[in-house]
Design a binder for these strands. Structure first.
Lengths: 228, 228
DNA sequence: ACCGGCATTTGAACATGTTCAACTCTGAGG
DNA sequence: CCTCAGAGTTGAACATGTTCAAATGCCGGT
């Protein structure tokens, strides 16, 4: 798998975009597995080889999709983050927006998740190649937390964005399996769990629980350390 | 993908076993991805087609491996479960035995996990084809819990085995990534988290926490419901 | 001993992700 | 207008998971 190339000319830009657009459309129409690289190249009006010139593998198209979705997500939550100050509302709105943004891709999201969960894949969320995107998402959650009017202790603040990112992945895994109409069960789960999270963050400020908080944070850090 | 066939003759038994043994050895030697079905058939001394007669796909060989490992695990913890009555010790010993049993396969465990995490795969842990094995593992944790001298409320008891099964999967995911010598970090994590779990189960008996316990269990059930 | 049916075995054919060496196009420099 | 380096493009070739129709082996019944 050779490294893919960044287009340097307008022509190249056009080809790369056409390939990605075709892939996105076909993934939606037929799902990930049933979409062949040949079909993508055909619809994009380029040859099979050209696809591999811009995307090192079929999985790399998924990474691009992932990043594309992230942009949609950012756009969707911009107003909310600018307006809302309540922590629970900010988290709930952000995570709800994730599943709403991803809704058109629900049918093939399973395949994507598998790609992304595979430790052997260079694209898995803990891996090197997805670091840029991961950092961006974690950074987003940092903003979600910092922009709220809730006072959060520094030691919690430093772990919370990563934890929320993991939480979002958990929600997405639930959502993939959710067959309820309108994905209502996922939305309900988000409401309940964000409530719970914010309550826990609040409780952590109680002096009585200082001990538990320290040991919980130590545990979290020991899990995170060495990963990434 | 046609359904695989159960061998009905001694000859068939022999072929099936040879194929599985060859696959296991090759997975260990070269990893999952680099092991081809042709290489498996070659080493087993059968034709390519025969492999597909007994295993519907390469992934089904993984499911068999999974079940094989479960047998090893059962054998490993038999004495412990017969002797030990302390809940924390039973859970810790059982989960420690999982990672110890899987240690020889650590290098290709990532690929297996990916297979198993893929919602599109018929083998994923929530799917139909892995139900038998899943029920067996959950049943094992039921025994782990019931055989302890800790008093556990019925409503918790009914969810705990499933939760412990999920917990074990989480530990395995951590273990896959663990590069520490002797996998000491995973073992330490198991010790800390089993401690925590048992403490939580104990706390849940306090009348003060009855409310939280009810709502936590409601959440767990709402997550589990509809899955499986 | 022969036969019929069924389990088992076979390997060629197929589908599809990936590689690669050769070809074409473009635009800057002369 | 010519040259040419390098970006872009191409499709054949390859590797490997999977399918399938045909061949083979085995065994009980006659």
């Amino acid at each position: 798998m050779n490294a893919a190339v960044q287009p340097l000319t307008a022509r190249g830009e056009h080809s790369r975009a056409a390939i990605f657009d075709a892939a996105l459309a076909l993934f939606q129409e037929r799902g990930y597995e049933s979409t062949t690289m040949r079909a993508i190249a055909d619809r994009a009006g380029v040859s099979l080889g050209s696809s591999y010139h811009y995307f090192a593998s079929k999985e790399h198209l998924v990474l691009e999709f992932y990043s594309h979705t992230h942009q949609l997500h950012l756009a969707a939550i911009g107003p909310l983050l600018a307006r809302e100050r309540d922590l629970a509302a900010r988290v709930r709105g952000t995570v709800r927006a994730v599943v709403v943004t991803c809704e058109p891709f629900h049918d093939f999201a399973g395949a994507i998740f598998s790609t992304v969960a595979n430790p052997a894949s260079p694209l898995n969320p803990f891996g090197r190649e997805s670091k840029a995107l991961r950092d961006e998402v974690i950074g987003l959650y940092a903003e979600v937390v910092k922009g709220s009017d809730t006072r959060i202790a520094p030691d919690i603040m430093s772990e919370l964005p990563t934890l929320l990112w993991l939480y979002q992945m958990g929600i997405l895994y639930f959502w993939i399996w959710d067959r309820s109409p309108g994905r209502l069960r996922t939305l309900a789960l988000i409401d309940e769990t964000t409530e719970l999270i914010v309550r826990l963050v609040g409780l952590a400020n109680l002096p009585v629980l200082r001990g538990s908080r320290k040991s919980a944070l130590r545990l979290v850090r020991s899990i995170a350390e060495g990963q990434f």
